[in-house]
Structure formats: C-alpha cells, structure tokens
Amino acid sequence: SKDEDANILNMDFPWTINRDHSKQKEIADWLTLEIRDFVSYISPNRKEIELRNQTIGKLRDAVQHHWPDANLHVFGSYATDLYLPGSDIDCVVNSKAGDKQSRNCLYSLASHLKKEGLAEDIEIIAKARVPIIKFVEPLSKIHVDVSFERTNGLEAAKLIRGWLDSTNGLRELVLIVKQFLQARRLNKVHTGGLGGFSIICLVYSFLHLHPRILANEINPIENLGVLLIDFFELYGKNFGYDHVALSVMNGKATYLPKSNWKELHPIKSTFQLAIQDPGDATNNISRGSFNIRDIKKAFAGAFDLLTNRCFELHRAKLKDRQGCSILGNVIKYRGKARDFRDE
C-alpha cells in the first residue's frame, strides 16, 4: 500500500513487511513462508502483465507489418513466467523464408521499430554467434532482445512449461536461486555464470532426486525452506562436479558419470558443470559456465549463512525474533517498491 512505499525503498528485504512469521514453531516453516512471500512480492501484478502483453503485441504487429512472412515470438524467462523484475524480454523473429538473420535485416528492422516509436537506445550486435538487436521500448521501459531465425529457445520454453506443471516448488526455488545469483553477478553466461536454463535444470534435478520427494513423503511447496538449504548444501558442498553430469531426458532426472556420456565423447573429468541438453544428447548446455568455482563457493556460503541464521533465531527469544528475516541473509531486493501480487 502507498503509505509504506517510503519504507520499502530503504529496505533490503521488503517481502517481510507486514508479514511476520517469527512465531512459527519450526524454523524451516518460517523460511518456507518467507520464500513464498518473496515470490509473491517479485511476481508481476496484473498491471505489469498487461503492460508486458501490450508491448509484445505492438512489437509483433510491427514485425508483421515490416515482413509479412515473419512472426515475433517470446521465449526465455518471460515465456515461462520465471523472470525477475526488470529482466529483458527475449524475442525471436522467425519467417517462412528463413532469411531474416542477415546484417541488412537486423538494421532494417531496427530502423522500422524506431520509426514506429517502439524502440530507443538501440544496439545492433551483428557479429555475435547469435546476432541480436537490443533496445528499450519507450512506453513500458522494458528492455528487449530480438534474435532471428532460431527455434531452440521456443522449444526450451515449451519443455520448461511442462516441467513447471509437473514439478511442485520448481518455480519458487528457481526464482530464489536466480535472484541469489543475479545479486552476485553469477547469472550471465558470457562471464562464466549460470544461465537461466542451467539454473532450471539444477533445481529440477535436485527436486526429482531428493530422497524425501522420491519417496513421496513431502509436498515441496510446504517444504521450500528446508529444500532451499538442502539445495545449497548439495551444489555448494557435496556435488561431484569433476565426475558427475546431470541429465533430464523425457522428464526423468538422472546423474551420469561423465566418463559414460557416450554422445559427448571424450568428456574430460574436470571441475566443470555438465548438463546434458534434453533436446540434443551431444550438447552440454552449461559448457559456457566456466566460473563454477565461484558459483559453488557462493552456494556453500549461502548454506552457511542460512544455517547459522537458523541456529541464531532458534536460540533467540520470541520477542527478539520479531521483524527478523532468515532469507534476507542470502537475498536482498533493492529497487523500486512493489506491491505484493494479489492472490
């Protein structure tokens, strides 16, 4: 609500405002409730969703107007509802002729969008492995990336939407891990960080291989707190990055000794994350994430911070717990004040 906005802006963990869980008997339940509050806080409200859809609609119309045989599609985190506030929208232009990836096409679409008043701060990156144009849509201020003549992003989005439907807790934990890595600048593949799809695979695999979930004992949604700590423990302390690859084929999460990954032959046993691409068994989707050392360290640090905070608050008197945050020890949210998504 409006009168609290001033407070929110100066606060590192605004998702705790008016939502005190310090009276929970179990510390794990307190953390679960905080995770749900965080997710509800950063999730887009109806107005933001409308603005986003209008923006995409206008861009799609403009592309079709410019090239009648082409269409603009959204993929990436906006297509799977796994984006953080302020994330870029990833779009792709595909056409019947399949000829829109040339340098000329990039420039011609960029100038068309500019003329229509749909793009400012345009940047054309024509020389990259995947050429794109980047711009800001002036009305919504949303940052947009457009690539050309590619379908793998769309296929991945479809796959991920299926995983989200079948896997309780996947969305919540992915959003937390994303926010965690983003704050530490470990979420950009071009600097060796973990990309969105890799994060999703890590969480998906974790959830499907967890003993309590395997045995059908728990509902992940009711156990997000302990599961988040278990996640940081697995990938921060215990996972054998040297020898083990992750695989999700036909929805089934398994591990694979790197030496047995026949399709990707020969694979070296090195300290490197390896995730088999569900769409192409020969492809390691995390091959760009060369900075796994820092990522592992960050996860291990998060485990220590969270468990230490749990011990501390477990010992504390009820009156000293009030207004405290557990999640705030590993995740901060700074930026414009937001309203909680109306539930």
Binding site: D29, N216, E217, N238, G240, T254, C310
Partner: peptide, 28 residues
C-alpha cells in the same frame, strides 16, 4: 534444528504405504 520436513499426511490411516523407487536413486 532446520532439517525438518512437513510430511504429506501424518494420520496413519490416510497414509499410503511408502515405496522406495531404488531405480530413481542416483549418487551425487
């Protein structure tokens, strides 16, 4: 202190017999 799981249903009558799917267990 923190590794506490909220089980799906604690009432013994409602609780189905749990089965461990050994074929889905993998070693990290």
């Amino acid at each position: 202190v923190w590794r506490v799981y909220l089980l799906k249903d604690d009432r013994p009558k409602k609780r189905k017999k749990l089965i461990l799917p050994m074929h889905s267990i993998y070693c990290y």
